[in-house]
């Protein structure tokens, strides 16, 4: 990502770097040191790492088979055999939470991936071409953006039917205008600098300039946005599953676990508490991580905060 590793360094590029406008060349190592000292970022990183590790472990091992129904063992309190107890059908809650974490990560990665690929492409095109292409892309994304995440996901699953894959698509589609806007906004700032003009002047096309100068410079903004979008995607998937539109039974999902616990609240509140806490921790972790990354990668915001 560091531009200094790309090519010999054209004189104009060097000039641009020297005025500090080219974000990618800023003194990053120092920032990272600062950021690791922040307890929020540290906590966010630890929670996110935990989420990933649990999901990875669930690929090879869970205490019990995730859909093994044993009605005689239903609604057991936490014990040595079942650390977080069992649910209505006697399934191990811990096993289901672990696989639910994996489910959340898959949803997050794919939905953010869809947003990144299409959104960044559209945003970069809009910024590079300007004019009516910009207008069309941005007004189109305004329309999609006008609906809150959950509403658009509801609309899309109503059209294409419920299911885990469709939920991912729905959340991904919501992410497209988000990333398109962020990319366009940041990219237009980069396009305002002389070094991009210089790139054009020496005969690079808009595509090459976007690839060589614009995208590396907006990458930090996108990373921050991706972290936040990841958290939103996990929350949206849980909401859709809770409403019966996301992951379908018997596959475990945190949102579905909440739904199943709903009528059991008076007799077994822990069935709602555990998946609820899992969602809170995952979303909190990703948000703290995103905040920390923003501090590290966005110098203006950091300076502003420092004041």
């Amino acid at each position: 990502m560091d531009l200094s590793t790309r090519g010999p360094g054209h004189p104009y590029e060097i000039a641009a770097m020297s005025i500090g406008a080219d974000e990618t060349t800023a003194a990053r190592p120092g920032r990272w040191v600062t950021v690791w000292r922040q307890p929020n970022f540290l906590l966010g990183a630890i929670l996110t790492a935990l989420l990933v590790v649990i999901a990875a472990v669930s690929l090879v091992w869970t205490p019990y088979a995730v859909d093994a129904i044993a009605v005689v063992d239903r609604l057991q309190s936490p014990s040595a055999a079942h650390w977080l107890g069992t649910d209505l059908f006697g399934r191990d809650v811990l096993s289901r939470l672990m696989v639910g974490a994996r489910n959340s990560i898959v949803v997050g990665v794919v939905a953010v991936g869809i947003g990144l690929v299409f959104g960044v492409f559209l945003g970069a095109v809009a910024a590079a071409r300007g004019g009516w292409i910009d207008e069309i892309i941005m007004r189109g994304s305004d329309v999609v953006f006008a609906f809150p995440a959950i509403i658009s996901a509801l609309l899309i699953t109503a059209l294409i039917g419920p299911g885990a894959v469709n939920a991912i698509i729905a959340i991904g589609i919501f992410n497209v205008p988000v990333f398109a806007r962020v990319t366009r906004g940041a990219a237009r700032q980069v396009w305002a600098f002389e070094y991009t003009r210089a790139g054009l002047a020496i005969g690079k096309g808009p595509f090459a300039v976007t690839r060589d100068h614009v995208l590396p410079n907006v990458a930090s903004v996108l990373i921050v946005q991706a972290t936040i979008a990841f958290a939103i995607a996990i929350l949206a998937e849980a909401t859709l599953a809770y409403l019966g539109l996301g992951t379908q039974p018997p596959a475990p999902s945190w949102g579905r676990m909440l739904f199943e616990a709903q009528t059991l609240m008076t007799i077994e509140p822990r069935l709602a508490i555990f998946p609820g806490v899992a969602i809170v921790l995952a979303v909190l972790g990703l948000n703290l991580l995103g905040d920390g990354l923003r501090d590290a990668l966005d110098p203006r915001l950091r300076d502003w905060r420092a004041e």
Binding site: D67, A68, I69, V71, L88, F89, G244, Q248, P249, P250
Partner: peptide
């Protein structure tokens, strides 16, 4: 239906029938 179906699906799976649940 919804709860009974999950249990029935698990019982069918036990004898080698893969019943896909469609709410």
């Amino acid at each position: 239906a919804r709860r009974g179906g999950e249990i029935v699906a698990a019982q069918l799976k036990d004898v080698g029938i893969d019943a896909e649940i469609i709410p």
